[in-house]
């Protein structure tokens, strides 16, 4: 009995020391990690919507976020302001690719009713095949597309050879974002 208690005590002690040192390191690094994440998002938003001056996160009524569809979910919406006016939206979404979720930003101009920018934030697609979804050759196809376009592989979008599923995931994300915009009333 005494032995069991002693053993448990030592194990507990080691855990307590470990927990305290981790709490300390976490405290030292947390602010920096959060700052980097914010900066990264800010930079990506700017790339998707270059003429924007300000991005404001919004919570739409009716169609709550995250908005789930098959192999797709819409995570966040930012309203884009320029010269005091609302000029469009940026959507953050994930779409299921070949190696897991692909996280991306899609910028839509509400004036011209077109897609102005798209940026892949995270993905685990096969290097050399699916990873080409970030290449300008593929992603460039989406720029300046009208929202009335079908956004379908084989019609208006050409898939990457050998990476149909990854290409489909990006295309699906655009299609779903457009359909969300059609469904939602006051954004």
């Amino acid at each position: 009995m005494k032995k069991i208690l002693q053993t448990a005590l030592i194990l507990g002690l080691v855990c307590v020391v470990a927990a305290f040192s981790l709490a300390l390191v976490n405290q030292l690094t947390q602010a920096e990690i959060e700052r980097r994440a914010r900066e990264e998002l800010e930079l990506a938003l700017k790339q998707v919507f270059p003429q924007a001056e300000e991005f404001k996160e919004v919570e739409p009524e009716g169609l709550n976020l995250p908005w789930e569809r098959e192999n797709f979910s819409l995570l966040q919406i930012f309203v884009v302001q320029a010269a005091g006016e609302r000029v469009g939206f940026v959507f953050e979404a994930t779409s299921t690719g070949y190696g897991g979720p692909i996280r991306l930003l899609i910028g839509i101009s509400s004036r011209e009713n077109e897609l102005v920018g798209i940026q892949i934030l995270d993905h685990q697609e096969t290097p050399g095949l699916g990873s080409n979804i970030t290449s300008p050759d593929f992603i460039g196809q989406f720029y300046s597309k009208s929202l009335t376009d079908p956004f379908t592989i084989g019609e208006d979008i050409e898939a990457i050879a050998g990476a149909t599923i990854s290409s489909q995931a990006v295309t699906r994300a655009c299609r779903e974002v457009v359909s969300y915009l059609e469904e939602v009333e006051n954004l």
């Binding site: 053993t7 030592i10 194990l11 470990a18 980097r36």
Partner: peptide
């Protein structure tokens, strides 16, 4: 270290240092 619990103790120690590396890299080498 009692030999019956040495493996959990080693794992706690190793994972503590690994988490430190992970956090520091996230902060300074993103």
């Amino acid at each position: 270290v009692p030999s019956q619990v040495r493996i959990p103790i080693f794992i706690v120690i190793i994972s503590t240092f690994t988490t430190v590396v992970d956090l520091v890299m996230q902060a300074y080498l993103p």
